[in-house]
Nucleic acid binder design. Sequence first.
DNA 1: GTCTATACGTCGATAGAC
DNA 2: GTCTATCGACGTATAGAC
Lengths: 199, 199
Amino acid sequence: MARKSGSNGEKTAKELRKAATVLFAKNGYAAVSMRQIAREVGVQAGALYLYTPDKQALLFDLMDEHMQDILQAWEGRAQPHAITPIERLKCFVRFHIRFHLPRADEVFISYMELRNLTPENFEVIQSARRTYEAILHDILSDGQADGTFKLVDTKVATFAIIAMLTGMNTWYRGEGRLSLDMVEDIYLDMVLSAAGAKR
Amino acid sequence: MARKSGSNGEKTAKELRKAATVLFAKNGYAAVSMRQIAREVGVQAGALYLYTPDKQALLFDLMDEHMQDILQAWEGRAQPHAITPIERLKCFVRFHIRFHLPRADEVFISYMELRNLTPENFEVIQSARRTYEAILHDILSDGQADGTFKLVDTKVATFAIIAMLTGMNTWYRGEGRLSLDMVEDIYLDMVLSAAGAKR
DNA sequence: GTCTATACGTCGATAGAC
DNA sequence: GTCTATCGACGTATAGAC
């Protein structure tokens, strides 16, 4: 990375976020130093403090932005109001996969670095996560009520389905034998079956 | 923790492993210092190096022992040879849940601290994990072959089911509204349905 | 906006007394 | 088997020059 000169504030701010995301995901928040991040950005460590009050705020901002992005992306998705629970569930599964897969680093951080947040910051992120889980839970509850789904417990099913879907990030790489469309169909099939819906 | 005097080697060794497990799980390997661990054990930091050559070996030993424990527990489980794929799958799900739930710290470490292993140590742990995943994959393949299961892809299903089951560790606490037996039944139901098996 | 220099603490690991 | 003392490196964060 070459040194910069002159005014680069906006660009540096963006590069800082990107470098921190990559390094935190790869090595973990606690194992990454501000000096490492600065080296990646191409500035000295002290200059980073023009863009973040401290390292903790940097982590929190990355996680908070990620959670806000998810919720906003869901609100503004293409299909605003599917009719049946089964269509809504399909819509959710596709959304989850398509949103999470291209953001492997952000997803990884948001799951792995929860324990490195201060209690106050932790609560904010957890609250956003609960909001997201509630989206799926509402779908399952509605489908359960009208007989579309046959679940023993909708709350457990919410956790199970999200864990199953997010787990894809740990193994899927675009270069493998399966295209994104194929994987999407495979997970759709398993989720609908797990929910007790006929296909 | 009270100070010790006299010969306590064996006891200290065990306490070291326990303290490291708890602290690594709670705060992360990189964020925990040898001094913290020593304080928990009740000795000075230097004394820890009688029991481990360095911090990395300590992490690896914990993870390796955990993986070996899983594999040995599976080999020596009560039901040595179930007949049908469906019974074998039920057996696996019950085993996974019953083994992982009481070992929340070890499971957490084994998933979260992979990136803090040296490449050589990482390969050892990954190999053990693949061995474990192959157990489930064999069951799914056999059931697929004889028509018991209806899966689009048994490899993806292996990842999906393990992620779903292990995800339980992130939310289940014994004090909630659901007993272990109930949760086991809920997950059994979802796994069998996801595999396309009739109940 | 970025640099250099630095304060000050803590880290992993070792040496040698007991 | 454990202690105290210590080494050299590195951590976050700040101050002040340019």
